[in-house]
Design a protein around this nucleic acid. Structure first.
Length: 267
DNA sequence: ATGTCGGGTGTTACCCGA
């Protein structure tokens, strides 16, 4: 099975490139983040033409996640167990944002996630990010407990660089989100819950970054970060034969600011 | 260089988020 994850930054804006990429890379399961669309405007027909069933959790201009599958799509779960909301300025009750969806595909339990950005250390959004990650760990632990032998994998935009070498210059990120100890502790909590990180191959000269800001010529300068991550339980991680970042997909006009991460697994 | 993209609207000029 080939399974991939990709923050598309608007599936409508990215659709021509996404369809071409799917026809080339041919993943069996595809996790998508930052759809920025409604479920009504999700391009189900175009994806069905390529053989994909889709489970979508989306509601408008922000967030939005989906799982596409050619190998079955059952037991779809939207949102996390106990998922916190984000308290917007004038909202008394914050509904869960559309940042997580789970499904079972070809015998593998798959979660696609778009972890909150955090904005600035100490900002309410930063604490929301940490709370959200705690709910993610609890949700995955419950799934694992319900079916201990079933391979489980969580993939997506974690908005966290696991180590200092996963960013182009750690000194440029002093005091910033994505590299703080509490954020990395949330990743360690996933590991403690029984998940192992699936690392992509290194590039010829460099770390396999997955994200380059559109601003300040970040991509030409290779000022990137590895923040799109994959964590699998032992039955999944032990079966991985290859994993890579498709850096080529970040090139050219009309790209996302992220690149896809692809995992091949003998399941 | 705040050297960019998305989506949105009180739409042709800003607003927000990343």
């Amino acid at each position: 099975m080939r399974i991939a994850t990709y923050n598309v930054n608007s599936i409508v804006a990215r659709l021509p490139r996404l369809l071409t990429w799917l026809e080339t890379a041919k993943p069996d399961v595809m996790c998508l983040q930052e759809l920025k669309c409604d479920e009504d405007s999700f391009p189900s027909d175009e994806l069905a033409d390529l053989g994909y069933a889709a489970a979508v959790n989306a509601n408008g201009r922000w967030n939005g996640v989906a799982v596409l599958s050619k190998v079955g799509l059952t037991d779809v779960t939207r949102d996390l167990v106990g998922q916190p909301g984000y308290q917007a300025d004038d909202a008394l009750i914050a509904a869960p944002e559309k940042r997580a969806i789970g499904a079972t595909c070809g015998g593998v339990r798959v979660w696609a996630v778009y972890v909150p950005n955090g904005r600035e250390v100490g900002h309410p959004h930063y604490y929301y990010k940490l709370d959200w990650l705690a709910a993610l760990k609890n949700t995955l632990a419950a799934d694992l407990e319900a079916a201990p032998e079933r391979p489980l994998v969580v993939l997506g935009d974690f908005n966290i660089a696991p180590t200092d070498i996963d960013v182009w210059d750690i000194t440029a990120l002093h005091g910033a989100t994505h590299v703080t100890e509490p954020e990395r502790a949330a990743l360690a909590a996933l590991t403690a819950a029984g998940l192992r990180e699936v690392l992509p191959r290194a590039l010829k000269y460099d770390v396999a970054y997955t994200y380059w800001d559109y601003r300040q010529l970040s991509f030409p300068k290779n000022n990137g970060m590895r923040i799109d991550l994959v964590f699998g339980t032992p039955p999944f991680a032990d079966a991985v034969s290859d994993a890579y970042v498709d850096r080529e997909e970040r090139k050219g006009n009309g790209s996302s600011d992220h690149a896809p991460v692809v995992v091949d697994v003998a399941l």
